[in-house]
Amino acid sequence: MTKKIKIQIFPDGTIQTEIQGIKGKRCTEYIHILEELLEAEAVDSNYTPEFHETETVKITEKQEQRIRER
């Protein structure tokens, strides 16, 4: 799935965002970024089923070698 951030701004100034395509707790990292970009503060969070999933990452041999070299 493609990673997306949907942002809705309502007439009363309320902002609603939805993060799609990012599994697990990594999506919460975007809350801080959005707060800074939108000059807003998160007051409520609802988690999608993706939040409770585990992301699978495929590491190639070259990436694995770079990790070992560090």
Results as ranks from 00 to 15, higher is better:
T54S: 11
T60Y: 08
I5Y: 00
V57N: 05
T60L: 05
A42V: 12
R66M: 15
L37T: 07
S45Y: 08
T28M: 07
E41W: 15
E69K: 15
E53S: 03
E55T: 10
Q65P: 10
N46K: 15
L34Q: 01
I59S: 02
P49I: 15
P11Q: 01
E29L: 11
E39A: 09
T28E: 07
E36T: 12
K4Q: 11
E50N: 04
E55N: 06
S45D: 08
I15Y: 04
D44F: 12
P49L: 05
I5D: 00
I7C: 05
E55M: 04
I67T: 12
L37W: 06
G13P: 02
K62T: 07
R26S: 05
Y30W: 09
E53G: 02
I22H: 00
L37Q: 11
E35N: 09
R68K: 07
I31Q: 01
R66H: 05
H52D: 03
E35D: 02
E55D: 08
T14P: 08
P11Y: 01
Q20Y: 12
Q20A: 08
E39M: 11
I19L: 05
D44S: 08
I22F: 01
I33Q: 02
P49Y: 03
L38F: 14
T56K: 07
E35T: 02
Q16D: 15
Q20G: 03
T14G: 10
A42H: 03
K58F: 12
Q65K: 13
T28F: 13
Y30M: 05
E18D: 11
C27H: 00
E53Q: 13
Q63I: 15
V57R: 13
E41T: 12
I7T: 14
E41H: 09
I7W: 07
I5G: 00
E64A: 14
Q20L: 10
E64M: 14
K6V: 07
K58N: 14
I7L: 12
K25S: 10
H32N: 14
Y47D: 02
Q63Y: 06
A42K: 09
